[in-house]
Amino acid sequence: NQASVVANQLIPIQTALTLVMMRSEVVTPVGIPAEDIPRLVSMQVNRAVPLGTTLMPDMVKGYA
């Protein structure tokens, strides 16, 4: 099973992502693949992302 990127904390809207905000976890449905974590650093979320939420491509500006 492929690991996805999951929020390690509440990430407020417009926040630039850092490594400490994300973790990898095998979840359903599958979100952004964990191997993309380095690419996500400094990208902004376009909505508030609660703790434990799987990051989906449409939540990160410039990802999809």
Rank of each mutant, 00 (worst) to 15 (best):
N46T: 14
T53Q: 12
L51M: 15
M56K: 08
M21A: 04
N8H: 06
I13D: 15
V5T: 06
Q14V: 05
V27F: 03
G62H: 11
M21E: 00
D58H: 12
P33G: 05
Y63D: 03
P29N: 05
Q44W: 12
V20D: 10
G62F: 09
L51A: 13
L40P: 00
M22Q: 00
P12T: 07
L40G: 01
M22F: 08
L40Q: 00
V41G: 00
R47H: 09
L55F: 09
M59K: 01
P57H: 07
V41F: 05
V5R: 00
S42R: 10
S4P: 02
M56V: 09
V6T: 05
L51D: 14
V49I: 15
V41Y: 04
G31S: 02
I32S: 00
L19S: 06
M22V: 07
T15Y: 07
K61V: 14
V6N: 02
G31P: 00
L55R: 01
M22P: 00
K61H: 14
L55D: 02
P38D: 10
P57L: 04
N8S: 10
P29E: 06
Q2S: 13
G52L: 04
K61M: 12
V49F: 02
N46M: 14
Q2L: 15
Q44H: 11
P29C: 06
D58P: 05
Q9A: 08
T53F: 14
A16P: 14
L19N: 06
G62V: 04
V49E: 03
A3D: 05
T18Q: 09
S4R: 02
P33Q: 06
A48T: 15
M59T: 05
L55E: 00
M22H: 00
L19P: 06
M21L: 05
L19I: 09
A16N: 07
S24L: 06
V60E: 01
R39D: 06
G52N: 12
T15N: 04
N46V: 11
P12F: 04
V6W: 03
S42K: 10
S4Q: 00
Q9H: 08
E35R: 07
S4W: 03
Q44E: 14
P12D: 08
P33D: 06
L17N: 02
M43V: 04
V27T: 11
T53N: 10
P50W: 05
T15E: 07
V20L: 14
T28W: 08
T53H: 09
P33A: 08
V60P: 00
P33E: 04
L51F: 15
S24N: 06
V26Y: 12
V6H: 02
P12L: 07
K61S: 14
P33V: 08
P12C: 06
A34M: 06
I13M: 15
M56F: 09
M21H: 08
V20Q: 13
R47L: 08
L51T: 10
D36F: 13
I32Q: 01
M22W: 03
T53C: 09
I32K: 01
V45W: 02
E25V: 09
N8I: 05
N46H: 11
G31E: 02
P33S: 09
S4M: 02
R23A: 06
T18Y: 04
A3Q: 09
V45R: 01
L40T: 01
V27L: 04
A64G: 14
V45I: 05
K61G: 07
I11V: 06
V5I: 14
V60H: 03
L10P: 11
L55W: 03
L40A: 00
M59Y: 11
I11M: 03
G31T: 02
V49W: 04
L55S: 01
D36H: 13
E35W: 09
I13K: 12
L51I: 10
A16Q: 11
P12K: 08
A16I: 10
T15G: 05
V20Y: 15
P29D: 05
V30M: 11
A3H: 14
V41W: 01
V45N: 01
I13E: 14
Q44K: 14
T28L: 10
I11G: 01
M22S: 00
V27G: 02
G31D: 01
L51S: 14
D36Y: 12
N46I: 10
Q44Y: 15
I13R: 10
S42V: 04
L40H: 00
I32V: 08
E35G: 11
Q2K: 08
T54E: 00
V60M: 05
V49R: 01
R47E: 07
P50R: 12
I13H: 12
R39K: 15
G52Y: 04
M22E: 02
V20W: 14
L19G: 05
A64K: 12
Q14T: 12
E25Y: 07
V60A: 02
P50L: 09
Q14C: 13
P29W: 04
S24R: 10
T28Y: 11
V30N: 11
I37W: 04
L51Q: 13
Q2R: 07
M22K: 01
T15C: 08
A64L: 13
T54S: 04
R47Y: 11
M22T: 00
L55K: 00
A16L: 10
Y63L: 06
K61Q: 14
P38T: 12
Q14H: 15
N1A: 15
V49K: 01
N1I: 15
N1R: 05
L55M: 15
S4F: 03
T18I: 06
E35D: 10
M59E: 01
V60W: 03
D58M: 11
Q2F: 14
K61N: 14
P33M: 07
T15K: 07
I32E: 00
A34H: 07
I32T: 02
N46F: 10
L17T: 01
P33R: 09
N46L: 15
V5H: 01
P38N: 12
V41K: 03
V20I: 13
P50D: 15
M22A: 01
Q44C: 15
L17K: 00
L10M: 15
M59W: 11
Q2P: 15
Q14D: 15
P57N: 05
D36V: 08
T18N: 05
R39Q: 08
Y63C: 05
R47M: 10
Q9K: 15
Q2Y: 12
P57Y: 12
L55A: 02
I37Y: 02
V49T: 05
R23E: 04
P29T: 05
Q14N: 13
I32F: 01
E35I: 12
T54A: 06
P38F: 12
M59R: 03
P33L: 08
M59A: 07
A3M: 11
M43A: 07
M43W: 07
T18H: 05
V5C: 08
V45P: 00
V27Y: 02
D36R: 09
K61D: 12
T54L: 04
S24C: 08
G62I: 04
N8G: 08
V26F: 09
E35K: 08
Q9E: 12
T53E: 10
S4V: 02
G62M: 10
M21G: 00
